[in-house]
Every structure is written in structure tokens, then in C-alpha cells.
Nucleic acid binder design. Structure first.
Lengths: 144, 144, 144, 144
DNA sequence: TTTT
DNA sequence: TTTT
């Protein structure tokens, strides 16, 4: 069967601090939501629209970059679209997310502690992470 | 406000014939769903996974390409992610779709009539369409 | 004939202030070079590599964004690859460039005047530009 | 230092059969050129333009897919831009190429043997290859 | 140097 | 010819 091209790139800002979880086998799963702005024309003038997308980052890169993924932080993400499916009340529901393969921290925003006690200190800054293996590369239950 | 980078590219096949609608002002809206295959590793062997994504194409390009968008047809799509939001039972629901800006018809599949009487004949083939204006470029109600 | 998918996205920093020219018909052409960094593995450790790419931006968007395109400025670019060809000493030479369709100014760098008298003041910041028409949309000689 | 976003996607056709080479350490390097068509407007009518881009594919994926990469074959490529630099007559020259990370064989073209005795037989078809490691993941001289 |  |  084919492995079709599936590639997304977004620039946006985190809507809140990223959340970190671990599978039973110890693989890190970092999840966050990103606000992507769009300038659009309504008749003769310009208005703005925001779109929110859910991002997931797996493995070693999630661990490394997690502490920088705070509310308001601007990031560029390269990844692929994934359709998550699950059962709920006997119905099958689905949701489109982005699995990040590459994440670049950008200059603006979120550099100060984002309140709530998430201190995030004592590390020297870095700028990007290439994703390691994805979820399918582990024999594990991943509780989406 | 910013206009953030938002770009998707997919290669996949139509799950059924595309549907065509028109707004009150006469703008065409072509909608279809695309199956995107993914080869993934489960432990030591390879399995396949399908993801389905909803595509919308607006305007002149929709009219031109609609007749070729039949079940099984392979296409490459360049566009942007859009988060559609609406109210339902007092709840606000949302769904991620792709608004196509560029669509390329690829060689394989869907060339024979896809049943259901959709004859689609008598035209010489062409290969691609650049999208014209999007929905925001019209003063119109777009019934998503 | 086909219109094939051709899409590039880069994040990088300007190596110097952008240059502005105009065609006879008055269309703006803004050119600059961007440094794109790459972390790569050499055996057991990481080194860095820089790649430089030439960007061209046409039309109205070039005029609007030109003043912000100063040395060191970080930008995200969405565009397409173009192979420029010309004759030189009876030989046909060619060079790959990126024609930007979308440019987003990012937070970091280049915000202070970049020396050389390029004052660039008195405007309120903005964040992005969608490209207007490309060179082929004008009946004009474009001196690349 | 940063690892900047750098992503290209092209659909096009091979201008001739791909060439295969090996480094001293045995890593495969597959090179080919792709013709990417572009429909453009000249005043009031449409003309066509071709752009040619050089693609390199490394490692295991190169070995697997090489035999299908024949003249005329249509492919979709996801990869990154790379600026190759070398010395020539005391001058430093450079050239932009695409290093493929993902290659999808598309339906059309190149399926019959492309003359010249390149038999290419005895394998069951497949559709895509994820690139393994790039050149920097080997301690080797890569004669570009 | 070029593909359909 | 090069950015942080």
C-alpha cells in the first residue's frame, strides 16, 4: 500500500502551557494547542480570524522541548495530519490533529514564566528539535 | 494582527464523488473527502493506516475541476488548515478541514465513470487548478 | 499541460537588508538572501551547517514589507521554487530561487536600524503579507 | 544554534533514469532530475513553463526505490532544500538541490522499461519510501 | 542537459 | 557574498 505525502507547516502561539504525559513504556507525549491567525478580507476591509489546532509531539524531543512550550510562545511546526478516532456512546468520533516531526522555537513571547508556578528555569536555551520515533514505533498503549 | 503561515500538502484518493453546491451569490463550493495512506511500523513489521480528511475548494476552480473529482481519483492538494466552528445543542463544536488553494489531478484511478449515473464525459483532460478567491472574498452566507 | 505542486517553506534570517527594484511598468521586486540553519549529526556529536537561499517577493506585498526586511530579521516564507535561466558567455546558466507568496515577520532580530542610513522609522509594525500577482501577471521586462 | 524549518514538496516527472552511486562505506546515493510544470498567465492567456530541479535520495530508501525511478515517471517528493558548495577554478560555486526525505511514486508514466537495457524486473511494485539517515549520519566522504 |  |  502507498505511503502518501502528508505534510503540514504552521506558525502560531501556544494557547497555554504544554501538557506532558508518559506511556507505560515511558515514552513522552507532549500535547498543546496553537493559535494560528489569518488575515482575511470581508468585502472591502480586512478582519482577523483565529484557528486553533492540536499538536502532539512524541519521544525524546518532547522531553527536551517541553519546558519551553509555555503559553504565548511562538513556534513553527512541521509535521503531519493525523485523524484520531475513538468510540463514544456507541458512536465513532474523530478529530484531526498534527503530529509534529520538527518544532522550532521562535523569538517572540512566552519567555517569562507563564504564571501558575511553572518555573521552568536553569536550562540553557536551544532552538529546535527533530522528532524521534512516533507512537507506532513503540509497542505500547497510547491513551489519546 | 499577524497572518501566520499555514500550509498543508496531501496526496490521496477521493472516497466518493465530490459534491457541488452554490452560495446565494453564485459562488461554487466543492467538497470531498480524501483517503491518505500511511505506512507505519508495529514492532517488527509494517502495517497500514488510513486517514480521512475533508477538503473544500471554492470558486472558479471548483467549477472547472469538479467533473474530474470522482471516487478513487488520485489528487495532490496544496491548501491551508481551517477550523470550522458551529453551535449544536447549545454546544460549540469544531472540525478541522483543508481549504484547497491548488489541486493537481494525478494519473491513477477514478477515470472510469463512478457509478450512480455521474456520466462525466466529453471533455478533454486537464491537470490542475489554481484556486481563485476564497469564501471571505465574497459578501455571502456560506452554509458550511 | 499540468500545473504541478511546488511548495517551499523556510524559516531563516536575512543576511543583509533587502534590495528593492522596479520594473518599467512600476512593479516592485524585492530581493534578499536568507540564512537557514541546520543541526546535523557528525558521528557522535552535533554540528551546525548554514544554507543560503535567494528569495524574491513581487508587487504590492514587496512594497509593504520591504522596510522591515533588514539584516538579521527572522522571517518565515511560503513560496515556490523557481529555476532562473540566462545566457552567459554562450552558456546557459541556471539558479534556483524561491518566489515568496507569503511572508511572515517573526519576533527576533533586525529590529534596530541596520546601519548604513536605512532609517526605517515611523511606521506601525505589522506581521505578514500575502503576495499579490507574480511577475507573469505583468506585461513587462523583468531584469533578473 | 537553531535548526530552522526547511521543507519542500514537489510533484514532477523524471527527465531521465535515476543514477545510483555508493560511498566508500556503502551508503547508496540516488540522484535524478525532475521536471515541474507551471501554468502561468502572460497578459490575457495561459502559457506553460518548466522548471528542473535536482533531487538526491540517500540510504536504504534509495536502494529500494531506484529501480522505479525511470524517465517520465511521475513522483511526489517531500524533502529539504540544500545548498551544495564546492571550489572550482579558485572560485566557490554553489547549487541548490533537494534532499528527499519522502518519495511517493505516482500513477502516471515511466512504467515501461525506458530503453537502454535497464530491465528492472522481478520485483513487486510498491508506492513509497521514507528516507533513512541522511549523508551526515555516516562517517564517510560523499563525493557530490 | 531535460518530463507528460 | 552571508544570519542569530
Amino acid at each position: 500500500m502507498a505511503n502518501d505525502i502528508n505534510s503540514v507547516i504552521l506558525v502560531g502561539r501556544l494557547t497555554r502551557d504544554a501538557e506532558m504525559r508518559y506511556t507505560n513504556s515511558g515514552m513522552a507525549i507532549c500535547k498543546f494547542s496553537v493559535a494560528v491567525n489569518r488575515r482575511k478580507r470581508s468585502g472591502d476591509q480586512w478582519t482577523d480570524e483565529v484557528n486553533f489546532f492540536d499538536i502532539t509531539l512524541f519521544g525524546k524531543s518532547a522531553e527536551g522541548v517541553h519546558q519551553y512550550l509555555v503559553k504565548g510562545k511562538q513556534v513553527a511546526i512541521q509535521g503531519e495530519l493525523r485523524q484520531n478516532r475513538w468510540e463514544q456512546d456507541g458512536q465513532t468520533r474523530s478529530k484531526v490533529e498534527i503530529v509534529a516531526q520538527n518544532l522550532e522555537l521562535l523569538g517572540g513571547g512566552g519567555s517569562s514564566p507563564s504564571g501558575g508556578g511553572s518555573v521552568r528555569q536553569g536550562t540553557k536555551p536551544f532552538e529546535q528539535y527533530n522528532s524521534g520515533p512516533g507512537p507506532e514505533d513503540f509497542d505500547d498503549d497510547i491513551p489519546f
